[in-house]
Design a protein around this nucleic acid. Structure first.
Lengths: 335, 335
DNA sequence: AGGCTAGGCGAAAACGTTTACGTAATTAAA
DNA sequence: TTTAATTACGTAAACGTTTTCGCCTAGCCT
């Protein structure tokens, strides 16, 4: 605060021009090693760091990326961020976080606020409330963008996702093998490819095993804890399913609570299986069979892609990176 | 990207000077309402947003704050961030996130990288690995800083914390009332005021109830899952405590697992109580008695304080804001 | 008429970098 | 020896704002 240490100051003290200082700091080939060393040592001595605003204004590089997600207080996303941050640190980038809370207007507002050069690129996992691909069709032309997990399809952008269809298929088969025939589906992300793929995997598994898919009850996720609990209660009462397949983590608590309220034993009366990154899944009562996405890896991969793009490196052939989820069998499906 | 829309462009189209445009955009009293309206409508029409780098460079305001925390993949911190972000949005600020992973060097490196005008202020919850107050003593003179939860004391900075001592005291009393006399302590954050306060509350509660405090076993947290599990196993085997008081969430899984491995029934053989923001605490097997900090509120309060400082508003008398935690009794302490 | 005030606006400097271009000295090529 | 190329550095413009200062006009008061 007291003594502003900038490039000019360095130049004066070393009796060279500010251009030389700038080039030396950026390790330009134009500058001799001798001069570079003088600059570097003085810079270190004076604790100089370049002013990011000035540098950004001139060079149009911010060394900053934005992460736009529904909510950070969610195991999947907080793990993703952890992965993103790890890579960002390696590349020397800064990370801005924006939470949309599944609100598409907030999502658009945030994104638009980034188009004036505030960031070099964006990592996003889109809101589930709507599927408005027009906006993103235009957006991807304006700024480097990588989607992760919750993506828009058919766009000229990199996407990092998981094998939602396959793992949902596999998980449904697991329930069927455990003897379930009335498998209710707790439906989340229904507007998004991920949600649809999970549901499709579930349906196809049922069909493959000769179970009438269209007769299975479905509860759609609402942004209201009470409502979800109520719907699951009704589901259990009216359809008496022998299994609940939950496509998102948010259904776990209401599902367990509903079973408890109705006096249903898990897994004897009803089996439960859910997509989830809960670290305490194995401690639940009973422990929960989960489909666990590699959230941390997804974040890492997405970030790596973005930084490759920002550094003009060629992306290896494919624009779609698909990682594998894990089906972890525990007591709640008990078999 | 194609047509750069900046203040100059607006000025040209309206046939006024760029100074007038800038002042109009900032709603300066110097400009007539008529001109302001012309500027505002054109700005909206052309989708103009000011270049943050230029604006920052000139005005020394970034409309950005940094949050420095150990790890985002932690229920307490992710909830805090949610709170911070909510307030930041209200004030129109952007939020940078940095994860230290309890590494004091990373913490210092990140913080230093923010002192060149990248952010207007910092919200931090410090690493537990060390207590190096010299650094922060200097830091608070250089940039507006608010500590939350994990703080440095005796500094000229705002701190948002919780009633760690009182709630730990109260929780320990709860265990004693349940008949426990051999209460082992799982010690986390031992270098920080929060960790010390929790331990002190525990010790004082023991003393108050005539239990020899210095005979109670203590397991200190290690950054290694296996090691913690092993230590708790040893603890259970050698000291046969009738209760575990965990001062941090990270002990929950190893504690439950250790009990399971040793064939100990919770709460019959050993009761468990932990500081935690786990949303699934009530679903654990058995459900877990927790001390739950108001993480979301802490984030909100800390952010509010910082923005008040940044806007030169007077902080209400006190530099220390202390929020109340909740003791939520469940089956794991069964009484 | 002359002087004053205030309102509304513009000119230009400044913020701290990066970079295109110029130049002098040295070295290599012819 | 002359010419071309290379090395090492400097000059100055530019990035897009904000802000100080000054100017002009209109209206008001003596």
């Amino acid at each position: 605060m007291a003594e502003a240490v900038n490039i000019k100051r360095l130049a004066q003290e070393l009796n060279i021009s500010i251009a030389t200082v700038s080039k030396a700091l950026n390790d330009s080939y134009e500058i001799s090693l001798k001069t570079k060393n003088r600059v570097w040592t003085l810079a270190k001595e004076l604790n100089y760091t370049p002013n990011p605003a000035a540098s950004n204004l001139r060079s149009h590089k911010t060394k900053t990326v934005a992460v736009i997600i529904p909510c950070v207080a969610n195991n999947f996303f907080s793990l993703s961020i952890k992965g993103i941050e790890e890579i960002a640190r390696q590349y020397g980038y800064h990370v801005l976080i924006y939470q949309t809370h599944e609100n598409i207007e907030a999502e658009v507002a945030f994104t638009n606020s980034l188009l004036n050069g505030r960031v070099d690129g964006i990592l996003t996992s889109v809101s589930s409330s709507e599927y408005n691909s027009e906006y993103y069709t235009n957006l991807v032309k304006k700024i480097p963008l990588v989607f992760f997990d919750r993506v828009y399809e058919n766009l000229d952008a990199v996407k990092v996702t998981t094998d939602d269809y396959e793992i949902a298929f596999q998980a449904t088969e697991h329930l069927i093998e455990c003897g379930c025939t009335k498998i209710a589906y707790l439906y989340g992300l229904e507007n998004l490819p991920a949600g649809k793929a999970r549901f499709a995997g579930y349906l196809d598994a049922l069909k493959t095993h000769g179970i009438a898919a269209d007769e299975q009850p479905v509860v759609k996720y609402q942004d209201d804890e009470e409502l979800n609990l109520q719907h699951i209660n009704e589901l259990l009462r009216e359809y008496k399913p022998d299994a609940l397949f939950s496509s998102i983590e948010e259904f776990i608590i209401p599902a367990y609570c509903a079973c408890r309220e109705m006096g249903l034993k898990i897994p004897d009366d009803v089996k439960i299986l859910s997509f989830s990154n809960l670290s305490t899944a194995k401690l639940l009562n009973p422990s929960l069979t989960t489909i666990t996405q590699p959230a941390f890896e997804i974040g890492r991969e997405a970030a790596k892609c973005l930084f490759k793009i920002l550094n003009n490196k060629q992306l290896d052939d494919e624009q779609n990176i698909i990682l594998k989820s894990m089906l972890i069998k525990r007591e709640s499906t008990g078999c």
